[in-house]
Design a binder for these strands. Structure first.
Length: 216
DNA sequence: AAGTAACA
DNA sequence: AGGC
């Protein structure tokens, strides 16, 4: 079951079943143990994000005073990023059929107070492949708009196990996270990656960064 | 610049 | 501009 929120922006509620959520949480925990979460900072001002980030893949996105960029090594340890978790790769194969393999798996870690301001994913060279988002843990209010910051926006609640595909005419659509929901009754429903605050949310975003080479 | 403040 |  899927819902087209706007052309090219597809919500797949409950895409990951319980077994897949548990498996993915374990894979993410192993990644974060090897490549610890870091706090990204705003370009120029150095203002820290409220979201902490981990990463996997040949390239991953980082942000600091010098700007936004993709780089092959962890910004603190200098080590290469761990491989993208297999459960996330399987979701890419299913939800982004025909796209070249993802190179970046950004792991956004939200505490109950974390937010992500409205933004575009535009630091990639390849805008043909979609961005794939996978949610674990606490529910969140996702807001999406159009290709201009001033375009009207709508909101939808994302739950643990949901997938969102941001592609086609919505590949550069503005989007963000306005709030994390606290749901005491459901706190124990899902195991979450270690190093995540209680009541938190973990979101994986998979992206193709470089242009795929033509096959000869 | 994925940040925030102020507002109805 | 939407959420709170």
């Amino acid at each position: 079951m899927s819902v087209e929120l706007r052309p090219g922006l597809i919500h797949h509620p409950g895409f990951l079943d319980e077994a897949a959520r548990i498996r993915l949480a374990g894979e993410v925990s192993a990644i974060l143990a090897a490549a610890p979460p870091f706090t990204p900072r705003m370009p120029r001002t150095g203002k820290p994000f409220s979201v902490r980030m981990g990463g996997a893949g040949p390239l991953c996105w980082v942000s600091d005073e010098a700007g936004y960029r993709y780089q092959p090594h962890h910004p603190v340890t200098g080590e290469p990023w761990p491989p993208i978790p297999p459960t996330a790769l399987a979701a890419w194969d299913q939800l982004a059929p025909g796209a070249p393999p993802p190179e970046a798996c950004l792991i956004n870690l939200y505490g109950p107070e974390a937010r992500m301001g409205l933004h575009q994913d535009r630091d990639e060279e390849d805008f043909d492949a979609p961005v794939l988002s996978l949610s674990l843990g606490a529910a969140a209010l996702f807001r999406y708009g159009g290709l201009s910051r001033s375009d009207p926006t709508r909101s939808v609640r994302l739950m643990s196990g949901d997938a969102v595909v941001i592609g086609g005419p919505s590949r550069l659509a503005f989007h963000g996270i306005d709030r994390i929901y606290r749901e005491p009754d459901l706190l124990a429903q899902d195991p979450l990656p270690s190093l995540l605050p209680p009541g938190g949310r973990c979101n994986l975003t998979l992206r193709r960064v470089t242009r795929a080479h033509a096959v000869t």
